[in-house]
Amino acid sequence: MEKVLFGYLSLAMLVSALLAVFSRNAVKAVLWVLVMFLHQAVLFLTLQAEFLAAVQVIVYAGAVLVLFLFVVYMINLREELRLPRFLGSYPLAFLAVFGLLVLAAAGLSGYHTAQALGILTPEALLKYGHARLLGEHLFREHLLAFEVAGVLLLVAVLGAVVLVRRIREGAV
């Protein structure tokens, strides 16, 4: 049953990602990405990573896609841009894809799983949970980086507010 569920989730994620890439309508592309994010959250749930599933839904499916939708509506696309098809470049494209597949196979040939290091062992994850271990790891070993990232995000938000205020004052 687990393999069937994994097969469905991976196939749904792959199909929805391809539909998002090849969709001509930007809003439909964002909605296909939403479908992909939700399937990925369910995949995290099957791996017993509840915290990652919640972050996937809240941050990516919630905040990031809402931001994408706002950007799509702010640029106000009036008409679709049509470019000529590149009919003569198929042999070159196949050669590039073959080269990338060879590089991927060469990179994966020496792959081996890493050993659990530090406090992030499978036993500790089962005993304490993902969220607690992640919080302890962030606030003990990476406190300075965490605080710097928070300050940078605060400065970015304040900068955006100042820029919008200047634009509104200049337009009035």
Rank of each mutant, 00 (worst) to 15 (best):
A20G: 12
M13D: 01
V162C: 06
M36N: 15
R140P: 00
Y60W: 09
A156C: 03
V66P: 00
V97S: 13
M13R: 04
V33T: 09
R132C: 02
L100H: 10
H112P: 00
L81D: 03
L117S: 06
L14Y: 00
V161T: 04
V35L: 15
G150I: 02
V57L: 14
Y128Q: 05
H39L: 04
I75C: 04
A96W: 15
F44H: 06
L11I: 01
A131H: 10
G150Y: 02
R165S: 10
P84Y: 09
L5A: 11
E147Q: 07
A160F: 03
L100E: 14
L87G: 12
V151F: 09
L69P: 04
E169Q: 12
L95P: 02
A114F: 05
L103R: 09
A96I: 15
V161P: 00
A104F: 13
L153R: 03
G7T: 05
L81K: 15
F22E: 09
E169T: 08
A104M: 13
V72A: 14
R78K: 15
L153M: 12
G62D: 04
I119T: 07
S89L: 15
Q56F: 01
L9H: 01
M74L: 11
E141A: 08
L69T: 12
T46S: 06
K127N: 07
L143M: 11
L65V: 07
L117V: 11
S10W: 01
V33Q: 02
F51R: 02
G118Q: 02
V15G: 00
P84A: 12
L125C: 04
L144Q: 03
L152N: 05
R168E: 13
E169H: 06
V157F: 12
R24N: 12
Q56H: 01
H137S: 08
L43P: 01
H112C: 00
L81W: 10
A114S: 09
L143E: 13
E141K: 12
M1V: 06
V15H: 07
L163Y: 08
H130D: 11
Q48Y: 09
A61D: 08
A156E: 04
F22N: 04
G107I: 05
H137C: 01
S23Q: 09
F98M: 14
V151S: 02
